[in-house]
Each structure stands twice: as C-alpha cells, then as structure tokens.
Write a protein that binds this DNA or RNA. Structure first.
Lengths: 232, 232
DNA sequence: CAGTGGTCTAGACCACCGA
DNA sequence: CGGTGGTCTAGACCACTGG
C-alpha cells in the first residue's frame, strides 16, 4: 500500500496533468481532503506542502491552494566532474596538461576572482579526452587562498573540478552557456575545424566568502551536448 | 522568531557549507536533534526530510542521515516562453511567420512525434525578434491530436509555446542544447554570418500520453546565452 | 537486539484573508 | 466572523540496518 500522503499527491497531480483542473483553479482544501481520504490534517498538509515546493500548486495563507501556472516546469542541471561523467558512460578518461603555472592576474581575471589586478593566481589549461578523443578544453584560473597546493596536483589522475570540490566545499556557482568558434589553440587541441561551432560554458564557483575559481570549458559542437529533461 | 524546523535546517546547512561536516559524514540523528533543540520528532523529521529532498543530505532507513556528496549542486532551468522572457526584460517582442501549414510527416518527424510516417502534422517556422533584432529561429512540428486548431492561431500575438501550454498542460519535456552553424535560411533570417556559431535547443514536449510537439530553437551565438546559478 | 528513519494521528494555537 | 494555511506536539506502529 502506498503512503497516504503520496496517494493524495498523485490524486491531485492526476487531475492537473489530465487538464481537468487548469492553472489558477482552486485545489480542494486541507479540510476537504481530510474527509475525502479519511486521514489526519498533518498528512494532507504534507502532500500539499510538497506539491507546493515542487511548483505544482501555489498556496496562499487565508485563501487556499491553487493549481500553479505551468510554465514552471523545470529541469535540474548538475555540476559534474568530466572524469566521473566519462567513466559513468563506461569509457576511459585521460587528460593532457598544456599549462600549469602561477601568474600575475590580468585585470579581467582578477575582477572575476575578486582579487586586485596583478595578484598571484594559478592558471591551468587541460584537454580532457574520452577514449582518446578530445571532448573538453578547460582553461582555469584558481584563487590560491582557496587551494594553496593546487599546482602540486597530478591533473592526469584527478581533475581540477574534483580536486577543488574536495578542497573547498562550494556554495554556489554561476554559469553561462554559449556558442562560439574555437581559437586556433582550441581548434588544434580539440581536433576540430577552425569553423566548427563549439559549445562553451563559463563558470565561476564560490566557496564561502571566496571565489574559488573561474573556468571556461569549450566542447566540440559535433561531439557534445547538454541534454536533460524538464519534469512537472 | 523563525520556525523551529527552519532553525534546524539552517543549523545543519551552516555546518555543511562551512566545511565542518564533510560529504559522507553523519548528521545528528532525529533523536539527538530532538533533545538538542527541545522540539518534537515530527519537527526534526520535517527539517531533515526537506534537506533530503533538496539534495543537501542523504537519508538511509536504519542507518542514519549523512552529508550528501556535493557534486549534486544543481541549477534549475525553466521552460520559458520567449515572448514572456523578452517582455520581462522590458523589451518589445515581435514575430515573423515564415511558414504555417499542414504536411505529411517525414520519417524522422513522425518518429519523434510517435506517429506513423506520412501522418498529417502541423509545421510552423517563426522568427522571434527582441526590439526588432532577431534572436530565435523556431522550427516546430505539432501533433494535431493535441492541438487541432493550432494553425488558426495568430502567431504574431501569441507564441506557439504559450498556445500549446494553454491547450495541453504538459507533463514532461526532453531537451538537448548544442552548438551548430546556421543553415543558409537560418543565417538570413537571424541576420548572422554563415560562419557564426549558433546555439540550438532541440526539445520534445509530452502531454499525457501524446507527444505534443518537437521543436528546434536556434539562437545567434553572439546575442544569446543560457545563464544560471548552481546553488547548494 | 537497539537504533535509525518512514509514516501517521488527534489535537492544538496562530496568522492571514475575505465577507 | 469563519475558513484557510503554517506550525507544532506527544505519542504510536512499522521497516530497515547493524552488531
């Protein structure tokens, strides 16, 4: 037997996704559902509370519960480690380190990392391969305050993403996905034509009070896509 | 005074994001937190249950609650109507209908829509503009069973997305984001150079038992990006 | 076995809304 | 005012885990 709160949830979801209850329509009140299902109010409350936090219904104190506007169908992207992703597909991950050094930050990099221009930062450029085929060009700048030992890491065995996640639990990350043409360097190391469209993700990760790292990930357009599922 | 369940949530979140409790570490049990906060078990349970559904902790019956692995930081993309999006930015949306007709489905389209090859489908191609500048080329095929009156819609005033959302509440949608070069047609109507990289989203929307629509949305790489925030 | 989370109840008090 | 949701309690029974 399914839990009572789940039965209530499914009952309501069914009426919504069948189109019988339209966005804006009132959902039966807690009192009504209590009687209908012969269960306690806490149980009904849980069902409605969860539907609310899932964006399925909207609740207003003193007024009632209503079917939510349905544009709110959403998807969750996850911040994944490229190595983990490749291994999960049953393939072999390898990496080629093109650069790994300390530098003085340019104005732009300093700004993104929340440091003053000219501050010492770590810079790595790594190409990730799946079964020997290049799939990601990773150009990363790291805040030394967050990971002092960053450059001593063996980036063939562990990725910067994995290392930084372990070093500094991150609290948030901003990203932007865009299309671009590869730079000559990127084209060479990703093994794509100079005019082939590429997918790029720019990402800034924050750990506590510090910006941990800024990175530009470039993927060959012909060999990579972000896929997912929106779900009600 | 903040609700007790929220205080417990924040207490735990603080210990996690400060790095004091690492991924895999056990979180205090319900019984412990009951005593510590002098509140009932239901309240503690709610706090932990919500943290669990938010991906912050992982709970195992019979074992305990643990700090979740932090790769699970995620972002929520929303399925938005382009018109709504433009208006929200305080700009003017307009549209140019390049094609709007019934057709016999090609094998590929029929497959995506879950119909037999040669079945009658609706096909629209529309360019969306923001303040007169083209930003999206929308090539869409619609299942007539889901929206029989689709072609009678005035697509200058309302978008296919808005119309379909209203017509058929959707239950899920699959998407894939990739980089591509524009076709000659797309380049012309989006007003981009033939070699400029573009961003494309392929999307298949499902309403109940039917596939409602398949669409390919092409954006000029220089004028559009998907941005967002991962959050713990 | 003892400890954990999963679920549920019957009642309670409060804040908010509209009439 | 009555109806709504927001929160909380003290207890209960169950299923699962480990030793």
């Amino acid at each position: 037997m399914k839990p009572a709160y789940l039965q209530v949830k499914e009952f309501i979801q069914q009426h919504i996704s069948s189109g019988e209850w339209r966005p804006g329509d009132p959902v039966p009140s807690e009192a009504t559902l209590m009687q209908q299902f012969e269960i306690s109010r806490m149980t009904v409350n849980r069902a409605l509370r969860e539907l609310n936090s899932e964006g399925m219904v909207k609740r207003v104190q003193g007024l009632g519960s209503f079917v939510a506007e349905l544009h709110r169908i959403s998807s969750s992207l996850h911040l994944r480690d490229i190595q983990e992703e490749v291994v999960e597909r049953g393939h072999v991950h390898s990496a080629r380190v093109l650069l790994s050094q300390a530098e003085k930050a340019s104005a732009e990099v300093a700004q993104s990392l929340g440091l003053r221009a000219g501050a010492r930062v770590f810079h790595t450029v790594i190409v990730h391969l799946e079964n020997g085929v290049p799939i990601q060009y990773e150009d990363r700048h790291v805040n030394p305050a967050v990971s002092p030992g960053y450059l001593e890491t063996n980036f063939v065995k562990t990725t910067p993403t994995a290392h930084l996640l372990k070093e500094a639990p991150l609290t948030e990350a901003h990203y932007s996905i865009e299309a671009c043409l590869p730079t000559p360097d990127q084209a060479r190391y990703l093994d794509v034509a100079p005019h082939e469209a590429c997918l790029a993700m720019a990402r800034r990760t924050v750990s506590g009070k510090h910006v941990a790292s800024v990175v530009r990930l470039v993927y060959p357009g012909s060999r990579y896509s972000f896929a997912g599922k929106f779900q009600a």
